[in-house]
Design a protein around this nucleic acid. Sequence first.
DNA 1: CGGCCTAATCACCATCGGGTGACTTTGCCG
DNA 2: CGGCAAAGTCACCCGATGGTGATTAGGCCG
Lengths: 218, 218
Amino acid sequence: MNATAAEILETPAAPEKELPVRDRAQTQGRIFQAGRALLAEGGFQAFGVNAVARKAGCDKQLIYRYFGGLDGLVDAIGEDLAGWVTQHVPEDQGGRFLLTYGDLMERLAELYADALRADPLMRRILVWELSESSPHIARMADARAKGIAQWIERMRGSLTPPKGADTVALNAVVIAAVQQLVLAAETSGSFAGLPLKSQKDWGRAVSAVARMARAAYA
Amino acid sequence: MNATAAEILETPAAPEKELPVRDRAQTQGRIFQAGRALLAEGGFQAFGVNAVARKAGCDKQLIYRYFGGLDGLVDAIGEDLAGWVTQHVPEDQGGRFLLTYGDLMERLAELYADALRADPLMRRILVWELSESSPHIARMADARAKGIAQWIERMRGSLTPPKGADTVALNAVVIAAVQQLVLAAETSGSFAGLPLKSQKDWGRAVSAVARMARAAYA
DNA sequence: CGGCCTAATCACCATCGGGTGACTTTGCCG
DNA sequence: CGGCAAAGTCACCCGATGGTGATTAGGCCG
């Protein structure tokens, strides 16, 4: 009945409707990709059995058969996104030397912002997380938190934060700021008077976050 | 046809259903309050003509007649919230001396967090702003941004930020962090590993924001 | 009393949502 | 060939939604 996200992802998606292929794996893949696309484009509001089936070009019954309903499909998509941070936030230093823990967080803010800005699906899911609470969603949030913690741990090397600094809280604040700015940018193009459209705007925003991170860890 | 929010607010709401009062102003008030309550409780997803009418205990037709439909009702609610920052973020110093511009922003973060945490309706609207973009919503966001700018201007006194500090960007970052943390707290109770449930948790979060604000403006 | 304005309701429409059982097609295998 | 399991489709059900036109009920005034 249920299929793992890994299996499904092997099928690279068949975007346009063709006559029924009579290939379960491929049909599963089409449904899966249709779900992702729909979520990325219209958010959870546009996400429904009928819509997914329409987009996948098959009968909605198959969603129930192959994924056990919408919840199952969401689970599959979520499972596939479990390693998102690890996959989308690179672990190189971009040619820079990270001299202090503050530099590290500055870099994280920058990379996290880039990754989010490049991924509509993840942005929609973040908004979803703010809109309602459900087991699926909680799991995704947890996975992201762990991914970020791992990133820091791996990149940290021998860098240590100053004594008395509440790293968990400070890091959460940095990530929170980035996240809110990226999400707000999409719908309103600005936040609290700060424009967030051009690349230049983003440079400004990121360097503000960077300044705060560095200063807080000084 | 349309009524201003000010007029409507005079009627303090009649929570339970009574037999038709045959009083236009009062009925308008009930519809208005029903809309607010519904929005506050279930977010924009729970917000619909039928639901509002049900909650207000009247026929949905009246929503069209008195407000020109759902959009009009949203406008009325939004108009009423135009002065939210001014009304809910106090402009006293809570017995503290604000010695630096950093202190000022620290205080703003604290007060803004408190105000948001106390107002479910505004939280829902913030999430709404992240979910879709529409004229109503854009107006509300603008009004908030202006309110915050006014707060700073009025509280600033003779305090000035250090040279070279991009105040607009830094302030936006502070506000963004607070906002994201408050919103995340509601649905998941934590953010990036930082718990956000007890009052103690909030103290921790706020002091992290405060540390960053102070440090960045040092 | 009778008329009249208006608050409020009713009945109805089309549409879309999630969900299910019965059906048809296809390809494989003995 | 005949049968059978799997892939896929069809035809429904039900409830809720946004939206509208016709209708009723109530108070005020001459």
